[in-house]
């Protein structure tokens, strides 16, 4: 059982989450008035049943030795993904507080440096150029701006 879980632990976690979400969603759908709960109720049950079926195939079905096991992400890979996610979260927070285009330029520069783009002047030039093009198009042509931010 544990060996099968180890073949693709993320898949099992996703399936359990979908199973629980399906049950919770079905329970919530019982409180919707009129026909509003019919369709969501059916879909949520189907989601739980589908997740159960895939889980069943994963743990009770024959082991497909020929199937490629998704490459287990090493700890360094997991840390790298977490850092990338963190960079994106900081960028989105900055967009709503600092300003869309200024934070975009800073984000591009930082993320490119982290991803190993060298020389530094190339990262700076690319960041400024992309942010300027976005500002020209979205800010100037389409007139999009975020109010209540420090910069533009």
């Amino acid at each position: 059982m544990l060996a099968r879980f180890r073949r693709n632990p993320l898949e099992t976690i996703v399936l359990v989450v979908l199973l629980v979400l399906g049950i919770a969603g079905w329970m919530m759908s019982q409180n919707f008035r009129g026909d509003a709960g019919t369709w969501p109720g059916v879909i949520m049950i189907m989601m739980s049943v589908g997740a159960l079926l895939v889980l069943g195939a994963q743990f009770l079905g024959p082991v497909d030795e020929t199937a490629e096991t998704p490459a287990a992400t090493e700890m360094s890979g997991k840390v790298r993904i977490a850092i990338n996610v963190a960079i994106l979260v900081v960028y989105i927070l900055a967009v709503t507080s600092v300003g869309l285009y200024a934070s975009t330029a800073i984000y591009l520069f930082g993320h490119m440096l982290y991803l190993g783009i060298r020389p530094v002047w190339l990262a700076i030039a690319t960041s400024v150029a992309v942010a300027a093009v976005l500002w020209m198009f979205f800010g100037y042509v389409l007139g999009i701006s975020i109010s209540n931010t420090l910069l533009f």
């Binding site: 989105i92 869309l100 975009t104 984000y107 591009l108 490119m112 690319t126 976005l134």
Partner: peptide, 11 residues
């Protein structure tokens, strides 16, 4: 490519 795609996605 990756950061530019992310910036385009956010905007």
């Amino acid at each position: 490519v990756a950061p530019v795609v992310a910036a385009l996605a956010v905007v």
